[in-house]
Computed example of a mutant assay.
Amino acid sequence: MLFGDVLASLDETTGFRGPVACRAVGITYRQLDYWSRSGLVEPSIRDAKGSGSQRLYSFRDILVLKIVKRLLDSGVSLQQIRSAINELANRGVEDLTGITLMSDGASVYLCTSNDEVIDLVQGGQGVFGIAIGRVWSEVEGTLSTLPIEHAKSGVAAGHDELAARRRAKRDAS
């Protein structure tokens, strides 16, 4: 990763709360909540379980959220986005950086090579594209400045001063 110091420590128990995910992606909490409840993009680290619990999103979850937002902003239907997200879910994190999503506004195509992108454009099927590697870098840069949370402790780490004070007070007692 580009920001190794901050994001390299992320593992399957470290992620970002809903409000942080919203800031990183540029969506409202209401959108995030709907996407989670409808199964479009569910948090892979910790889901909300009743009142007072908080979802915890992984880096990959936030990357997918950003892709969903870009596709919606481009006018792609939610049904087509679901299909594309399901296809992305079948791929590992490392595979994502080499994928370009192409769309003609009605369908979404996953291209894994420049030749596939060129074929779609020449065939008139590709009107716009989203290079996931570039989105990856954007999300990585944004998240490097936002607070990280560890699922086991429930306490934010990184750049959250209030959480650090709470942790210090708890440890002192």
Rank of each mutant, 00 (worst) to 15 (best):
V155W: 10
W35D: 06
V64F: 02
R167H: 09
E116K: 10
E138N: 03
V64E: 13
G92T: 09
E87P: 07
R60Q: 11
S51M: 08
S113R: 10
A21W: 05
L120S: 10
R167Q: 06
R60M: 08
V76L: 01
R91Q: 10
E87N: 10
V139A: 04
K66W: 00
G154V: 09
I45C: 05
I132H: 04
Y109K: 10
K152A: 14
A84N: 07
L65S: 03
D11V: 01
L63M: 10
T97W: 07
I62Y: 03
Q31Y: 07
C22Q: 08
R170P: 03
G92N: 12
R23Y: 07
S107N: 14
R166D: 11
G133V: 01
D104E: 08
L72Y: 02
R46K: 15
R60E: 13
L101W: 03
G4V: 11
T100H: 11
S113I: 11
E94N: 12
C22K: 11
P43Y: 11
S36D: 15
R46L: 06
V25D: 03
A131G: 11
T145S: 14
L65F: 00
L10K: 02
L162N: 13
K152N: 08
S44R: 14
P43A: 12
R37D: 11
A106K: 14
R165I: 13
D160N: 13
L88E: 06
L7Q: 07
S58M: 04
I99V: 12
P19H: 04
A89E: 05
T14K: 15
E116R: 12
C111V: 12
D61N: 07
L32T: 01
L71D: 06
G154Q: 08
E140Y: 00
R55H: 07
I132M: 03
P19T: 06
R23H: 12
G126D: 09
G126I: 05
A168Q: 12
G15D: 07
V121T: 14
W136Y: 15
A157Y: 00
F16G: 02
E140I: 02
A24W: 02
I130N: 03
T13R: 15
G105V: 01
E161I: 14
H150K: 15
I62G: 02
I81C: 09
S103V: 10
G4Y: 09
R55W: 00
L10Q: 03
I148S: 01
A106D: 15
D11N: 15
I130G: 03
G75C: 02
T97K: 11
I132T: 02
I27T: 13
V41H: 07
V68M: 02
A157F: 06
R134Y: 00
D73Q: 11
G124A: 07
S83A: 12
V139L: 05
L63K: 05
I67V: 15
A84E: 11
V135I: 11
S83I: 12
L162P: 03
V41Y: 01
G4N: 14
G92P: 08
R134G: 00
R23G: 10
Y109T: 08
G133I: 00
L32S: 06
A168I: 09
L96Y: 05
A48R: 15
L110E: 12
I99Y: 04
A89C: 00
L2T: 12
